[in-house]
Design a protein around this nucleic acid. Structure first.
Lengths: 257, 257
DNA sequence: CGCCACTTTGAATTAGCTCAAATTCCGTGG
DNA sequence: CCACGGAATTTGAGCTAATTCAAAGTGGCG
């Protein structure tokens, strides 16, 4: 199905156990995603689609028909305002749902774009609803996904509103690593599939600030760049990033050099 | 039921027709809220609760059992991070749903607090689900509410990330007025039920900046303070605020004096 | 009347932005 | 295989929007 990288590999770094959501919780999460996908496959034989970096799964204004669930790959949601502003508002991974925002208005409210090669499964919303009538677990599952999305969007807002730039970047990396860990993917070495400009757009800062923040985090030893290419980042210990976010809050803003 | 202020009063200001979502669309929206509440009443005879400013409808970590729908009043959602940060992440009005964020984890993820006197209806989530099995319209309605919430959260994020402070405040006022208009409430004279500190917290800026922005907007004639008390604000024309947001975006950031 | 919480406004400071230049990376074609 | 060119990144320097700190001013309410 998808590379089932042993979950015990993902969190072998020291300090991983202290984190909220330890190894076993991640394993459970990953397992549930697998079950979800299996269930979808059984019930719908969903249309599978291979996508490549840059491909749009759906676009703003397009008529809402399907919800999409990535089986692999990374995806970004781009919100477009009528006045031309454009912003990355969410990142999506395997097992997440894309397209909920289209239910209310009958049209998708943003663009969903693949950030690398992956596979998405398309499920017709009307079929899904029909099926929910007989499959009680399915509805619960969908509601949980929507609920999680709402909760996460609020956390994003809080992050943007309350954290200084460096902490925002640190939290972004931490969240990315955690998302991978939850899906049983390796987190010791992660590849950012976004340019500095995109990260900055997502976090509400300029590309230069992102670059500087990353440099500072690296200087502080919280991350390491791969020998070649600055898209590859090593995170010695995720807890280090979490701690840094904490520290940047304590009254006398003890930032690093 | 609730003060059904004639909708035609709400939008008597010039320029209202040019706005996205004119008078009739607002009227339709308001009508649907009425129908929703009527439906809930019929199906559940929901527990009604009168609340006063400052009352908590539910609190972070509390066991999730009910969803709540305000019949009247204004409410704020406060997100609390484990590290003590606190942020207003959403405002809720009559007909909105509160508590969706609790579905996924079984506990509410934020505090819901009344901002003035109002009435909320409590609906047990399990009863709601059970009822959805026989009432197809009900499920659609709930999903639309969740979908709208997701879409709006993203708009909030975009606003915080892409707009300068003055525009953010203007957009906030515009949204507030629009929310009232959509519910058939008067918008020519609105009463902010938040302190400058709360508004600032919601918009990701300090109370001083909010105060200064309001003063600038007033100086520019886009809003007017009531003779007494600076919580009362008159909005001569909503379109003026929308235009101001636009203007603050155009390349050479043409802000007001 | 007087307290207290909220608001406004000013002045100084700063985090993050803008502008600019140098560097690195990577794909393409010779 | 290497040279070339464009895109992404880094870093510096100066600037500016917004914050912090401070001091009045205002209104509500016991």
């Amino acid at each position: 199905m998808l590379n089932p990288v042993a979950a015990h590999v993902a969190d072998s770094s020291p300090g991983a156990d202290r984190e909220a959501g330890g190894v076993d919780e991640h394993q459970r999460f990953s397992q549930r995603i697998g079950e979800t996908l299996a269930l979808l496959q059984t019930l719908f034989a969903p249309q599978r689609r291979i996508v490549h970096a840059g491909d749009a799964i759906y676009q703003t204004g397009e008529r809402f028909v399907h919800l999409y669930v990535p089986n692999s790959g990374l995806f970004k949601l781009l919100n477009l305002s009528c006045d031309g502003r454009e912003q990355v508002v969410a990142l999506k991974f395997r097992g997440d749902w894309l397209g909920f925002d289209g239910i209310a208005g009958g049209c998708y409210g943003c663009d969903a774009v693949a950030m690398d090669t992956g596979e998405v499964w398309a499920v017709r919303y009307d079929e899904l609803l029909a099926c929910c009538a007989t499959q009680p677990g399915l509805l619960r599952l969908v509601h949980e996904a929507m609920s999680r999305e709402i909760a996460h969007d609020r956390d994003s807002l809080m992050s943007v509103c309350t954290l200084p730039a460096d902490a925002r970047v640190a939290d972004f990396l931490r969240y990315w690593a955690e998302s991978l860990a939850k899906r049983g993917l390796r987190t010791d070495q992660i590849t950012l599939r976004m340019t500095r400009a995109e990260i900055g757009n997502y976090l509400g800062m300029t590309l230069e600030t992102v670059s500087r923040s990353l440099s500072r985090l690296a200087r502080a030893g919280l991350i390491e760049f791969a020998a070649k290419g600055r898209r590859e980042i090593r995170i010695p210990q995720q807890q280090g990033l979490a701690d840094f976010v904490q520290r940047s809050l304590t009254p006398p803003n003890l930032t690093l050099q």
